[in-house]
Nucleic acid binder design. Sequence first.
DNA 1: GTGGTCTAGACCACC
DNA 2: GTGGTCTAGACCACC
Lengths: 133, 133, 133, 133
Amino acid sequence: MWFRVDPRSPTPVYRQVVEGVKEAVAKGVLASGERMPSVRELAARMTLNHNTVARAYQELVREGVIEVVQGRGAFVSPRPPPLDRERRVAALLAALRPVVREARYLEMEDEEVVDLVRRALADWRQGRGGEGA
Amino acid sequence: MWFRVDPRSPTPVYRQVVEGVKEAVAKGVLASGERMPSVRELAARMTLNHNTVARAYQELVREGVIEVVQGRGAFVSPRPPPLDRERRVAALLAALRPVVREARYLEMEDEEVVDLVRRALADWRQGRGGEGA
Amino acid sequence: MWFRVDPRSPTPVYRQVVEGVKEAVAKGVLASGERMPSVRELAARMTLNHNTVARAYQELVREGVIEVVQGRGAFVSPRPPPLDRERRVAALLAALRPVVREARYLEMEDEEVVDLVRRALADWRQGRGGEGA
Amino acid sequence: MWFRVDPRSPTPVYRQVVEGVKEAVAKGVLASGERMPSVRELAARMTLNHNTVARAYQELVREGVIEVVQGRGAFVSPRPPPLDRERRVAALLAALRPVVREARYLEMEDEEVVDLVRRALADWRQGRGGEGA
DNA sequence: GTGGTCTAGACCACC
DNA sequence: GTGGTCTAGACCACC
């Protein structure tokens, strides 16, 4: 599969599936319009409960990552339209809050934080951004 | 109080208290060595149960943010020693992963992400980093 | 159960549960990977509150003794990796301090102390290491 | 003073005083029959509450480490008679239990544990066994 | 069914 | 007065 799931992680399994799929899309492993495996197929392949995978798919639909066509299966969505994107950028900004808070607690300089971000971006590119939640 | 708590948030209330206190320390609202309100007083002021606050204090002790003196109360710690800091920087890097993942999913350029981070850092400085958990 | 708990002991009950479980693992009563009784089941069997047992389990997770799998229960961990072990040896050394102090107060010779330790190790092997906290 | 006390330690202050005095006796800093400072004097010198020191003295009497002579003050006891000693050796053996338990959990060999004990004994002799509880 | 969290209220050791 | 622990009972997310 394009990602792994750790049942011992504190992040719910269904959430890990959601993130795993998004990551696969981000990395181009799953292309726009590509057909997703069925809920039961993915569940079988990853030895997960199909209810768990179903819930993940629901969430992915809600987040606009995939689309379900009646009786024909699920497909990777085209990239979200600009408006939606704005909302996501806002979400990203919100996601940065705990990071900034911790950085401030550690009395890090702005540039130190920025350097760390660049490093995180580079890590990802080198494929080292592979697992975990 | 220096922070708010949302009982309907998925993050547990005691965790929100932990983050709230760390944020207060980061912002200088709580100074090194300053006396914390007693567990019961904070609980009363925030209309939480004393057990919930006690758990938060224990977590804060474990994270080195506060220190408890026998029957006298809790006090804000002096800043964590540099060694401890290293471990925290690593934690910060880990905290950046989901952010990077989302950014990649949004097909943002590195510099776009960096700009967003700079904005988040600036927002904080302007005191707009005030609420949420 | 594989251990007993003394509600009047100065060591908190939840701590006694932690030690009891570690002892069971050390003795092989609980094998690596084995499923732990559920929090509520153990609580019922020991006539403790489920909260107390839950706290013990959380502590055991933190110490790497058990692992919790989402909605399926807790399991005994594989043995801690060597690195972690180093830290534990240090802890063991620290735990020896009060023993040494008492021995010195009793004016015991080094070899007397060592003999006592050998005896304690043997006692354990003979299963006489069974009770107390 | 012959020892220090850490108010932030989880071990009660009065207990630290007890251990501190025993350690001083063990090290010969306080000799048999020597006069102890009065409760209030020791409290003043260590900036502790006199109630705390009083409690420690009570405990020291109970353990046979010091003796109080009506109106004349407290004195370091002569070393405990052999019978008493036996009881203490038993106590020492009991104190070894948690150490043995942890060692067993770590799957340490007997000789490894013995070596660690020798090291702890040597550490003490080199005066490195000075503080902490 | 499984663990995790929270309130409510009591009790305890320590200072 | 201060933090720590425990029982009782309710509720929740996850699988």
